[in-house]
Nucleic acid binder design. Structure first.
Length: 317
DNA sequence: TCAATCACG
DNA sequence: ACGTACGTGATTGAA
């Protein structure tokens, strides 16, 4: 509501600005130095394996999966995460668009699979198709709207939700969603098949057969049932991505141990792994990690991993 | 103890 | 007519 009103009132913009700064100060700047363990000189997060209903990890005490990156002041916090000493460098390895690749693979949507096989910018590619323009004529706005739909689809967005998230009217949003499904017809089939499966069985599954039970899937309350139906679509996507990165983590852990490497795996942030790399091992480690992450699980689309190094976590992105 | 807010993917 | 995009954790302030 305040974001909505901000355009008309300076005081509301200032309230939001203050809150943003207060958040950074209380949650990160003040709190994190208190979390340094005296014995090691490091912050030690705790990973929970049985909290998130989709199979993701969660992180607490402190949460290191929500370190700021979206604002300039927030990025200054991320800079504080550094290698153990000057003989080491941080390496961040991210799965590129893993959830969209998973939904493309599970739905066997050929057009989207082809786009990934060709190494296309999926949001631009989607924009070109749904707005029916050549790839090189896609505007920033069109790509932005296509990106919002691509993400929204994974969550089961409505025309109302999409219009709130973009500058499109409800009617335009509805048309865009319809065109999207005409562009990627197997996606709609897949989503409705997941909901049907959930109605019959009471659960849905990921690529490695992790289940999420959906007790509300046959509820007579349309609101409650609608939420369960979105869960039926989203959980296999988010959960399969979680399965894949967990397999990669196990294989990387074993490879690091077998190879007697000094490099250590430090953090997991859902589609990203962060390593403290012993500099002489860097080139070996980079190819090892890329190989293990991209081949952790064979889908009918390629997985792509982007990596970068830096003297701090911000620079490694 | 809970809801609201806001940090992340 | 209704409500309206998934998954988390930390902090704050009121109940």
């Amino acid at each position: 509501m305040l974001s909505y009103l901000a355009k008309d009132h300076e005081i509301i913009r200032n309230v939001l600005k203050y809150r943003g700064l207060a958040k950074l100060k209380s949650t990160y700047v003040d709190a994190l130095p208190e979390q340094v363990l005296e014995r090691t000189g490091h912050i030690h997060t705790e990973y929970m394996q049985t909290v998130a209903s989709t199979g993701r990890l969660s992180s607490n005490n402190p949460n290191l999966q929500n370190i700021p990156i979206r604002t300039e002041r927030g990025r200054q916090v991320r800079k504080a995460f550094v290698p153990r000493n000057e003989e080491y460098i941080l390496l961040a390895a991210d799965y590129s668009q893993i959830e969209l690749r998973v939904i493309a693979a599970m739905s066997e949507e050929e057009t989207m699979i082809e786009a990934f096989k060709n190494g296309e910018d999926i949001h631009a590619s989607t924009a070109a198709r749904v707005f029916n323009v050549p790839l090189e004529d896609v505007t920033r706005e069109q790509r932005g709207n296509a990106k919002t739909v691509n993400f929204g689809i994974i969550y089961g967005v409505s025309a109302f939700g999409l219009s709130n998230q973009t500058d499109l009217s409800r009617t335009e949003a509805k048309e865009l969603i319809e065109t999207y499904y005409e562009t990627y017809p197997k996606l709609r089939k897949y989503m409705s098949a997941q909901v049907d499966f959930a109605r019959d069985h009471g659960y849905v599954t990921t690529v490695s057969n992790r289940r999420r039970y959906l007790k509300d899937i046959n509820s007579r309350n349309t609101i409650v049932r609608g939420a369960a139906e979105r869960n039926a679509v989203n959980a296999p996507i988010q959960g399969s991505a979680a399965d894949i990165i967990k397999i990669a983590m196990i294989n990387i852990y074993n490879k690091l141990a077998e190879g007697g490497f000094k490099t250590k795996m430090l953090l997991q942030v859902h589609d990203e792994l962060v390593f403290d790399v012993y500099k002489p091992e860097l080139e070996t480690i980079k190819s090892l990690i890329k190989e293990e992450m991209e081949n952790a699980y064979a889908l009918n689309v390629p997985l792509d991993v982007e990596m970068d190094t830096g003297v701090n976590w911000l620079e490694a992105h």
